[in-house]
């Protein structure tokens, strides 16, 4: 299991097709892990590219951290990972919270990021996004899992429920994630977003409550194009091959 040390912390990474000339880094979302890409999306992209997946701090098999969930810290982590892997310039993709990290990377390190693919990044100022953080409880988790299983068909067992519950409990009550996220609520309104010049693909679900966030980004990022695909916020899980093909086409366009 590839675990590397970045800034003194253990980070779980997966690399595919290391020999390829260009690299794509994919960033997963909050309460998720790199497996969202591992089974379908990364293997297809790896037919042409070096693909790097990593688990964010306190997620998947990366080391836990009490602080540093704001976008500045999360992009510091990703920048340090790029340095550790000696990657000078990459294409970058991010899903949900990972999409926010990808946008922040393009703002902070424009020369290090080539193309940008944003999947279902939510507006941090949206009540529903923050509501997930505010209203957390065990009942909420069970309710969430029930709804989640409607669209992804994956039923969580008791051991999984406990594991997930422990992760939510840790992130919500022991780390700074809540306050760090609240500080980001003006991110979509900040002039910095308009400085993004990279060719940017925005992938959103037609039934997603984040679709308006995609439309907003499409309006303010100069070189963006929005594609709405059938599905909701969980489209990478519901339609991994559709997402993978859209990403591959985008990264290969000249």
């Amino acid at each position: 299991m590839p675990i590397i040390t970045v800034n003194g912390k253990s980070v779980h990474i997966q690399e595919l097709n290391k020999e390829a000339a260009e690299t794509i880094i994919l960033v997963h979302g909050m309460f998720s892990n790199l497996s969202v890409y591992y089974f379908n999306i990364a293997p297809l992209l790896a037919t042409k590219y070096h693909v790097v997946l990593y688990d964010l701090k306190s997620h998947g098999m990366s080391e836990k951290a009490l602080m540093g969930y704001d976008l500045e810290s999360m992009t510091n982590d990703l920048f340090a990972l790029m340095e550790a892997l000696n990657l000078q310039q990459v294409h970058l993709g991010g899903y949900s919270f990972g999409g926010l990290i990808a946008l922040k990377m393009a703002i902070r390190f424009p020369k290090r990021i080539n193309k940008l693919a944003i999947i279902e990044a939510p507006d941090p100022n949206d009540d529903k996004t923050r509501g997930i953080i505010d209203e957390y409880s065990r009942e909420f988790l069970e309710h969430y899992v029930e709804n989640f299983t409607d669209t992804t068909k994956v039923k969580m067992g008791k051991r999984q429920m406990e594991r997930n519950h422990r992760m939510y409990e840790y992130l919500f009550y022991q780390t700074s994630i809540k306050t760090d996220m609240e500080l980001e609520k003006d991110f979509f309104g900040s002039p910095a977003i308009e400085t993004i010049k990279q060719s940017t693909l925005l992938l959103y679900g037609t039934d997603s409550n984040c679709l308006n966030a995609g439309k907003h980004l499409d309006g303010i990022i100069e070189n963006a194009s929005l594609i709405a695909l059938p599905g909701d916020h969980n489209i990478p899980i519901q339609q991994p091959l559709v997402i993978a093909e859209a990403l591959l086409n985008f990264f290969q366009e000249i």
Binding site: Q14, L34, S35, V36, M61, V154, G157, K158, R159, Q160
Partner: peptide, 15 residues
Amino acid sequence: TKDLEMDSIEIVSFS
């Protein structure tokens, strides 16, 4: 997923 209750990150480790 059903019998062994492994989640996706555990299946990654297994793979």
